[in-house]
Amino acid sequence: MEGTAVPRRLSSGPLSWEVATVTEVTSETPTVRTIKLGVPSWPGHRAGQHLDVRLTAEDGYSAERSYSIAAAADDPVAITVERLDDGEVSPYLTEDVRVGDELEIRGPVGGYFVWETADGGPLLLVGGGSGIVPLRAILRQREHSGSDVPVKLLYSARTLSDLIYRDELDSYHDGVEIIYTLTREQPAGWTGYTRRVDQALLAETAWPAGKDPLAFVCGPTSFVETVAGGLVALGYEPGRIKTERFGGTGGS
């Protein structure tokens, strides 16, 4: 009806499942896809937040998973999903979902793992596998807001073709340093790191603790624990290390 606006709810207020429509689907890698969503009363999201997705089969069986929002606060809401071989939900989201399909979502959620421009830096972003997703949202947030907070992003993946958003990450220049480590296989001529993130790698790449950095660490639980422990050992303030642990290799 003319003049009627959809009521905007508070993003940190009461929450329930609602129906979203898939508006765009983008292939990021052979096993990773970004799904843009249209949500009628979307209150806006913050970089680092996630949303829950619920699928319901015709026989009533349902499955829920959480996915990080890949978008900055002023981007349309989108999630990036990695297909897991033994996954139940991710194969559906990465292979079957089409533009126009409906998905039940609940969100945005998560005020703990959030970066807002006013939070400052310098920022240390450490992502393992699909843990890069909320970190990419943070990078986009920084870019869109015109922030000049210096950033180091340390991104661990198995192979070059597993890197998500590579072109976008490589396009950041001013004040952003991207460090990749490819842990399983490297292309010919690779001069970057070739091992899993450990204490020594952190010591070589992370901001010195003296700069009072703000760290965001995301990925599989064991990755996050190793990195968080390593940063504490480097002198990082524990309260300035935000962590988000994904199950397995990051949602299913």
């Binding site: 940190s12 996630h50 959480s66 998560g110 005020g111 793992f113 642990r245 199950g247």
Partner: peptide, 24 residues
């Protein structure tokens, strides 16, 4: 099974309590 952190329950907690509980 990997242990997760409270972020993974953010949606459930907000649905129940009506506000973001991950920062509580």
């Amino acid at each position: 099974m990997d242990e997760l952190d409270g972020n993974g329950a953010a949606g459930l907690l907000q649905e129940i309590f009506g506000t973001d509980m991950t920062i509580a």
